[in-house]
Design a protein around this nucleic acid. Structure first.
Length: 414
RNA sequence: CGGAGAGUAGUGCAAUGGUAGCACGAGUCUUUUGGGAAGAUUUAAUCCGGGUUCGAGUCCCGGCUCUCCGACCA
């Protein structure tokens, strides 16, 4: 993509109401636009990142055998009365023209359970799992910290349906491993801790994936040996590492990036989701639900991966594979840069090509650092004199020259 | 929801109750191009509604919005 076609602009200063690192950098670099407290628009670069994150998650969901669907954001209020969650204070209520009452979904158990009831009749129909990426709405008492706590956000929610508890537990553990892989692949695996947490109204416990960070709203107790944690909300009943018995747990602030629950039969009972056993008996379906907020993950990645100059995207989340800068004003520089741009594009490498002739070199370098694409390629008079391009990784201060003839080998660089 | 603070050009900041100004951005022209270039010139603002006053960005009342701390976070 040509930088000159990008309508979003970088800024030297962040708006004064953006306090958190993720909000400041993402707004300055033109990834997101704040519309109101806790409500953001994703601009071209931001949407690219969001899509990259979702691609990783989608791949792992498909490995779990789950099928992608898309449910509506709007539900009849009645469904929420039925499940007993109609009084939740985070629900957005709205009214239709005939007085019909609706809820903007904060999560989708109330939608998917009756939906599943339509198709599940026999034990032969189980197990199965479905997931979606969808906007969720929660009237949070206090939106804060950029993308970390918003009133409208994107969630990947996965729901699984099983004939019995044993099968549910098996799947739950599989999802747990898939979640670990997702955060690993997105570059926050090291700081993201599997954490035992409260199960809310569904079950005694659940598991959260908590990324250790000062901006976190949760406190977890970390066993440094096992790299597992216990959420403060359950530390009174569970005060040793569940894996090794270590009693010396360290409190850490953390952001919840994922949460997995065994719902059991809470929703299948409310919505009459049953199946016939081989013996012809009716049994309630056992359910699990599993969530990751891709938009929040985007914010967390920025909190984890940045320096004083800007963002440093992990490759898997980066909007582009490489950022190509043409430095100088001779036409030849731009001609050569364009050639590199074409060659890399043909090789399937996404390149953001800064083709602006009016921007100074300093501006281009500063923008590249701010936007944070992990690989930077510079074509200038200096590099062309050596028939080369300069290659520099965003997280390193070292630059190397690569002969133009070998430019397409760039993706093999370590 | 409790407490605190803040709303001034697109952005960041200024302005004893007395002519709303600076920087960045954006437009035009000239020069400049390896770390956010220079000059000239133009552009653009007091959140909304009341009140006090000869006069309000500034003081008072109400509202709205934003931020922070706390509570909440199935």
């Amino acid at each position: 993509m040509l930088y000159s076609k990008l309508f979003s602009k970088t800024a030297k200063t962040a708006p004064s109401d953006a306090d958190s690192i993720n909000a400041r950098l993402l707004i300055r670099a033109g990834f997101i636009h704040k519309q109101m407290a806790g409500v953001y628009a994703f601009l071209p670069l931001g949407l690219m990142v969001l899509n990259k994150i979702q691609d990783v998650i989608r791949e792992e969901m498909e490995k779990l055998g789950a099928l992608e669907i898309l449910m509506p954001a709007l539900t009849q209020e009645e469904s929420w009365e039925k499940s007993g969650r109609g009084k939740l204070d985070i629900l957005y209520h709205l009214q239709g023209r005939e007085g019909a009452k609706f809820v903007l979904n904060p999560t989708h158990e109330e939608v998917i359970t009756p939906l599943a009831a339509q198709y599940v009749a026999s034990y032969r129909d189980l197990p199965f799992a479905a997931f979606q990426f969808q906007d969720k709405f929660r009237d949070e008492p206090r939106a804060k910290s950029g993308l970390l706590r918003t009133r409208e956000f994107i969630m990947k929610d996965l729901y699984s349906f099983h004939a019995d508890k044993k099968d549910l537990i098996k799947y739950y553990n599989k999802v747990m491993r898939a979640y670990s892989r997702i955060f690993q692949r997105l570059g926050i695996g090291k700081q993201t801790i599997l954490t035992l947490a409260s199960g809310g109204s569904f079950s005694k416990y659940s598991h959260e994936f908590q990324t250790i960070s000062e901006v976190g709203e949760d406190t977890i107790y970390l066993c440094e040996k096992c790299r597992e944690g216990i959420n403060q909300e359950v530390i009174i009943e569970l005060n040793v590492c569940q894996r090794c018995g270590n009693q010396n747990l360290r409190p850490e602030k953390a952001v919840e990036v994922g949460n997995i629950f065994m719902l059991g039969s809470k929703f299948s009972r409310a919505f009459g989701l049953t199946y016939k056993t081989p013996e012809g008996k009716d049994e309630l379906v056992e359910m699990g639900c599993y969530g990751i907020g891709p938009s929040r993950v985007m914010g967390v990645i920025v909190e984890m991966c940045h320096d004083e100059k800007g963002i440093i995207w992990p490759q898997a989340a980066s909007p582009f594979g490489a950022h190509l800068l043409a430095i100088g004003r001779e036409k030849n520089i731009y001609k050569e840069a364009e050639k590199v741009y074409r060659q890399l594009s043909e090789k399937g490498i996404d390149v953001l090509y800064d083709d602006r002739t009016e921007a100074s070199s300093g501006e281009k370098f500063a923008d590249a650092d701010l936007i944070g694409i992990p690989l930077r390629i510079v074509i200038s008079e200096k590099t062309l004199a050596k028939k080369s391009a300069e290659i520099k990784k965003r997280n390193s201060s070292k630059a190397v020259l690569l002969p133009l003839a070998k430019i397409t080998e760039i993706s093999d660089l370590k």
